[in-house]
């Protein structure tokens, strides 16, 4: 039987800033249907890894493939398959919410009907539909985050890469995002996200990786990583080592 292609494959990734190794020989595989959590303290190398996966940041060695395609060799076809949400979504303040969503939909070639129904569905779930006519400059941090999430979901990507997606969201919206993440995976997609909220990671992740000073110190299924302990205990023990 032919082996299924990984949705995201990070192989021996290394990225340095001057003399400092921000990411050191990391290998992660994410398969379709998986929610993969990426945990580490501030400055551990999470954002660098995520940015390298999206092609925003170059890297020194290793390989990153999305659905079998290398991000270095063919960034455009990779980018068509995923969506990225950064930790602080600085969107186009000069656009209204709806203009921004239409801009993203145009870039991904989403049809009029599809974009209309998806915008309606997600904006309704996040209860921001009425605000879509307002300039983004007037949005709160949480509203920008919701808009960034809708924009990411608008073209139904197979892979969603998120950096701290729950920051700034109210509990109800955070719950909706978790639901949406699970729906993506149930439909054969995958999620790769970083978080500091260990309870959330423990609750929703199928697999998890812990990064410390640029090195992957533990990864695998939730059971493999934490055993009988809580994820928080395991994380703190590993951090203390």
């Amino acid at each position: 039987m032919e082996k299924e292609t990984n949705m995201l494959e990070i192989k021996n990734l290394t990225k340095t800033y001057g003399d400092k190794k921000a990411v050191d020989d990391i290998t992660i595989n994410i398969e379709p249907g998986e929610i993969y959590g990426f945990i580490g303290h501030n400055g551990a190398g999470k954002t660098t890894t995520l940015k390298a996966c999206t092609g925003i940041l170059g890297f020194d060695s290793g390989e990153i493939t999305i659905n079998g395609t290398s991000i270095k060799d063919d960034p455009l076809s990779c980018k068509k398959q995923f969506a990225y949400i950064p930790d602080n979504p600085d969107l186009y303040d000069f656009m209204t919410g709806i203009k921004y969503l239409n801009f993203i939909a145009d870039i991904f070639g989403v049809s009029s009907d599809d974009r209309m129904s998806r915008i309606h569905e997600y904006a309704d779930r996040f209860e921001i539909e009425k605000d879509l006519g307002q300039p983004i400059a007037t949005y709160s941090h949480g509203m920008k985050q919701k808009l960034a999430i809708i924009a990411a979901w608008i073209h139904e990507p197979k892979l969603i890469i998120m950096d701290e997606p729950f920051v700034g969201l109210d509990p109800k919206s955070a719950f909706i995002v978790k639901e949406m993440m699970r729906e993506v995976c149930d439909n054969g997609g995958a999620i790769f996200f970083s978080t500091h909220v260990l309870e959330v990671a423990e609750k929703i992740c199928d697999k998890v990786a812990i990064i410390k000073q640029g090195k992957l110190i533990r990864s695998g299924t939730m059971e493999e990583v934490k055993g009988d302990e809580s994820l928080e205990d395991v994380f703190l023990e590993l951090e203390a080592e």
Partner: peptide, 10 residues
């Protein structure tokens, strides 16, 4: 400005 749903040309 309250947003009223409408079809957008691609």
């Amino acid at each position: 400005v309250e947003y009223k749903e409408k079809r957008t040309k691609e």
